[in-house]
Design a protein around this nucleic acid. Structure first.
Lengths: 249, 249
DNA sequence: GCGAGCTGTTGAGCCAGATCAAGGCAAAAC
DNA sequence: GTTTTGCCTTGATCTGGCTCAACAGCTCGC
């Protein structure tokens, strides 16, 4: 809760705080623009809202059968894959409005774990039903193609980061990316709370937690940011941007 | 041409060696199984076959408007993204039967370059038309979701490799992956020709070309493989597999 | 057939980031 | 309110892969 919160709560059932996509302020993040009232209603009928996930709990785990995509309504998730020999790679951090689970379409089983990093709430989009509905609503069909494509593009960006960038550049890029995503959701872009540990940041960026810690301290010494545990304040975003795009030497 | 070649050539037009998906031996790689003859015919009507791309030429480049996905019919491609400051990251190598260009759906512009590493041929799948057809053919709609999802899973695998593995493990994984993909297409899994330079391998794996070269030499010294320029022979696949899954220490 | 580039190999030395180690702090548990 | 536990920071040292450099072998154009 805070700047983003204004999701009007409308009670429909007893068990659920059931709440329609049509009245959700995150609509434009999860769904295509320009749905007619009828179409919107059809979507509402399929999506179940407001499933709570406690901090530390898994929304799903690798190997579980796939049924639904999930939209993060509130909170923060990490997704990660684990190799046979037990090494974890965080593949993404996901916040309000993000759609997750697309990797599971390929095999009908989830291929990664999705863990809540704070108390969260998700909406469930049964994929088979959505696919059927998408056949009647071209923009919905296209939307899902787009969402998956966007994930591919994002992954390519991470590959670029992991394959080419130095520790400082990675961290700077990471902070700027978070900042931008918070801004897009109406939160402050210059001051935010990290939901993940240094180790999780490191796993995502291909670094050890000590390197993450040291680099943040260094940025603080240089006056680029202020770090206080998980509270980050960006003081000089331009300096960070400069680091990301000018480092190659 | 060689073991995979038996695509019967059937002339339809004068300009094109037009050839139907319905009679293409790669069908099961590009298209869903179980299409009816009518459905197959509808697909044939949309897909234009046999566009040749010379070695070194671009199939498309980042920034170009998106119109179609492409199926590699013959040959070998690399795709790569370039950062603002000019660093290249190879995001994938693509061979016969692979579908490429999915990243472009998100913005309607291509986000990466696709370069032929040998003389190649592609089929063009106009995406808007395919989407429309997919509304009438559920399995086709699902197929494209699956293909994109598979790309996401693959990318997560690369992220794991780039984030966690050592040089030797990366190279071993790379060789095994190529081997497996050649096998799937009816080529030898133990002896193949690399279509890419050491530098391109390095870019894909987040290593410098010297490291790639050294590691291949080392594997040869250890008797795991035989290297003769771009010709690779896998002598002891188990040793390579062992490297990939047992290295963490 | 011959020279000019690419492409690949190998060596020597160096450095960014990993590893190992020791504490400190803050929130949760008891 | 104290202990526990997990998370973070910082220092010292080590090393895998990078950098720089020299050269060898192919391939392609002429």
């Amino acid at each position: 809760m805070s700047m983003l919160s204004p999701i009007p709560v409308r009670e429909i059932g007893l068990k659920h705080l059931r709440q329609a996509c049509s009245s959700c302020s995150l609509r434009e993040l999860c769904l295509p623009l320009g749905l007619s009232p009828d179409e919107m209603h059809a979507v509402d009928a399929l999506v179940s809202q407001g499933k709570p996930i406690k901090r530390g709990e898994a929304l799903y785990r690798a190997g579980e059968p796939f049924r639904s995509l999930f939209a993060v309504r509130l909170g923060f998730f990490k997704t990660s894959v684990v190799s046979e020999d037990g090494r974890e790679q965080v593949t993404g951090f996901h916040m309000t409005g993000d759609l997750i689970g697309m990797d599971a379409v390929s095999t009908d089983f989830h291929t990664c774990d999705s863990i809540a990093l704070e108390d969260s709430e998700v909406c469930e989009l049964p994929f088979a039903d959505m696919e059927e509905l998408a056949r009647k609503i071209p923009s919905l069909q296209h939307h899902f193609y787009k969402v998956m494509s966007r994930e591919i593009v994002r992954d390519h960006g991470v590959m670029l980061l992991l394959g080419n960038m130095k520790a400082e550049e990675r961290i700077a890029a990471f902070l700027l990316n978070l900042s931008q995503r918070f801004a897009l959701r109406g939160y402050s872009s210059s001051s935010f709370h990290l939901r993940m540990t240094r180790e999780e940041i490191g796993s995502y960026l291909g670094l050890k937690l000590e390197t993450v810690s040291r680099t943040l301290s260094k940025f603080q010494d240089q006056g680029f940011i202020k770090v206080q545990n998980r509270l980050i304040e960006l003081i000089d975003q331009d300096a960070l941007r400069h680091l990301v795009s000018n480092c190659p030497g």
